[in-house]
């Protein structure tokens, strides 16, 4: 069964002047369809203003479609009675780590979601402990969030979502404000949750090296999905990626140039090890 199903989705930001007349319409999403299977690790990439964050907010029912339909776990996001169940089953992690932590103590913040759901006290404690352990932040449970690094704060935010026992996590550029170490921390945590807890992950980013391990990658531009496929397929189409104002990981680009120069190596190389292997095979 599909975790997320998006059909012909369109969303318009409408600007009105003081009289309430429509001043301009910005079609942020324009005819997007996609399916995400349970347990998948999906990445959506795109330059600024490509509509990827707007798409993410539809999956958590923060925004509603202007046209088309979004189903999360079989529930239509337009139906009011589904709202809270959708938000529970598709948790969302935002970009700014400071602006999504509510409590002044780490464990209380993780408990915020279950409290809202009306979970009994004993079970909240169990869930908090389990979620903090899953993201490797258990030893910081009594600390103030202000004392944590950016990467740690994002892990706390992820734990806060995990405590609501979601089937799916949507991460909206969770690493955009982090340093390289923090980025690695967050991405490996997310991957771990995907593999061990079988959580469906929808990662929205513009860092190309974060999508290498995804099951499927969607590239967005001007509100449309312009490319889709496995990371290997996407990365073997380098000129196209560049056209969409996206960076390509260094190794991939080097391999691509080598191939163009006539070196006989496979297409879509994703890591340094792979390139070394390919070049060694060449010598053999």
């Amino acid at each position: 069964m599909e975790m997320i199903k998006v059909e012909d989705l369109a969303f318009e930001y409408i600007r009105r002047n003081e009289e309430g007349d429509v001043e301009s319409i910005n079609r942020a999403i324009d005819g997007v369809s996609l399916d995400v299977k349970k347990g998948d690790f999906i990445a959506i990439i795109g330059a600024n203003g490509s509509g990827k964050s707007t798409l993410a907010k539809h999956i958590n029912a923060i925004l509603y479609p202007s046209e088309g339909t979004v189903w999360v776990n079989g529930m239509n996001t337009l139906k009011e009675e589904n709202l809270w169940e959708i938000r529970r089953s598709a948790g969302m992690v935002f970009q700014n780590p400071d602006n999504q932590i509510i409590a002044t103590v780490v464990e209380e913040d993780v408990g915020f979601g279950p409290e809202n759901l009306g979970v009994p006290t004993d079970e909240i404690w169990e869930r908090v402990e389990k979620s903090l352990k899953a993201v490797g932040m258990l030893e910081y449970r009594n600390q103030s969030p202000n004392k944590l690094s950016g990467g740690q704060k994002q892990r706390v935010a992820i734990a806060g979502i995990m405590a609501m026992k979601p089937e799916c996590i949507v991460l909206d550029e969770p690493t955009a404000m982090l340093d390289p170490d923090g980025r690695k921390e967050v991405i490996s945590t997310v991957r771990l949750l995907n593999q061990h807890e079988k959580i469906t992950v929808l990662l929205i980013t513009h860092h190309m090296d974060e999508v290498i391990n995804a099951d499927k990658v969607f590239v967005m531009e001007h509100g449309k999905i312009v490319m889709q496929g496995s990371p290997r397929e996407i990365f073997s189409r380098i000129p196209e990626i560049k056209k969409y104002r996206l960076d390509v990981p260094q190794v991939t680009e080097l391999a691509y140039e080598l191939r163009n120069a006539g070196v006989d190596i496979p297409e879509g190389i994703l890591s340094a090890d792979e390139l070394v292997q390919a070049l060694e095979n060449l010598g053999a």
């Binding site: 938000r87 948790g91 602006n99 006290t121 806060g160 979502i161």
Partner: peptide, 21 residues
């Protein structure tokens, strides 16, 4: 941002809320 994050975590006022502590 915070309001959006709270809503995304199912916050809907004090009704039906339980307490961790």
């Amino acid at each position: 941002d915070l309001a959006m994050a709270m809503e995304a975590r199912c916050y809907r006022g004090g009704e039906g809320r339980t307490k961790m502590k």
